[in-house]
Amino acid sequence: MSGALIDIRNLTVRLSGGRDAVLVDDVSFAVGKGEVLCIVGESGCGKTVTARSIIGLTRHDPRFSLSGEIHFDGRDLMRLGADELRQVQGAGIAMIFQDPMTSLNPLHRIGRQIGEVLTLHGKHSSAEIRRRTIELLRQVGIPNPETRIDDYPHQFSGGMRQRAMIAMALACSPSLLIADEPTTALDVTTQKQILTLIKKLKVDYGMGLILITHDLGIVAEIADRVMVMYAGRCVEIGAVRALFRTPQHPYTAGLLASIPAANRVRGERLPSIRGVPPILSEGRPQGCAFLPRCDFALGQCRNLPPLRASGTDTDHLDRCWLSPEVKNQTLRRLQEGAEA
């Protein structure tokens, strides 16, 4: 995929130590300029490890071993030294995390923490840094930024802290923003505010966005493309409408059907996926990792299916042996049954 902002090829992350496990297994994807890719999956599926590996946060942990290529801005980030990588972190790629309270230093004023990023990535005068920090706080919708800049994190509400985190991420106008469950700790109406803000800033800054979430509602709201992960592997990837309308993997279809959405008629049983996701440190099932929970499993499923297109849409890939007819009819029916 040429012209992509970031191109990740065959990313594999192994956890060694007491229990060996492959946390991320041969994951490849690209994100274009201004594009939003959502990585979705349940706890332990490897979505956070994938995101942290892109920005190099897992590199210094001796328990992790990484392989693969991450092409960004004409370079392979996997081959960069620590100093070079630090230049990319924050300036080229920025990241925001789930819990804004633990990612802000409680002892430093908000303004100083944002200013620090500016100082690290450019040589500005202190007056200039303060002016730019106020400007950033205003952009992320913090009221009275001139006075709030001198507040400590505990004086901010949860939503405002996440706004401050976003301001910090934007400080160096990154071309790619990685957001790991940015609204999970927030209330619904605050979540709506933050998602609206992220969407707006993405356009203003022309950023690419990788957003990690477990909530398919958020995916539908913000994504251009979606990658579904299960047990460390990408099981389905495609454009958001294609994936929601015609899910090709039984896991994706099951997830979509099991959401107790507010638009659904009350009273009937929710379709659920039986069993629980595998614990990777206890070994992954042979072949397709979803096999023990799948209602459509075939003998063939003991061999790992390739990630390939089932239909004519060559951008919509899935990792499932089922025939395209079964996928298009049965899986669609599963989902429509849930909506009816």
Binding site: V188, T189, Q191, K192, L195, D215, L216, G217, I218, V219, A220, E221, A223, V240, R241, F244, L256, I259, A261, A262, N263
Partner: peptide, 8 residues
């Protein structure tokens, strides 16, 4: 209105 709906 704030509930994210699983429909693009």
């Amino acid at each position: 209105s704030a509930i994210p709906m699983p429909d693009p």
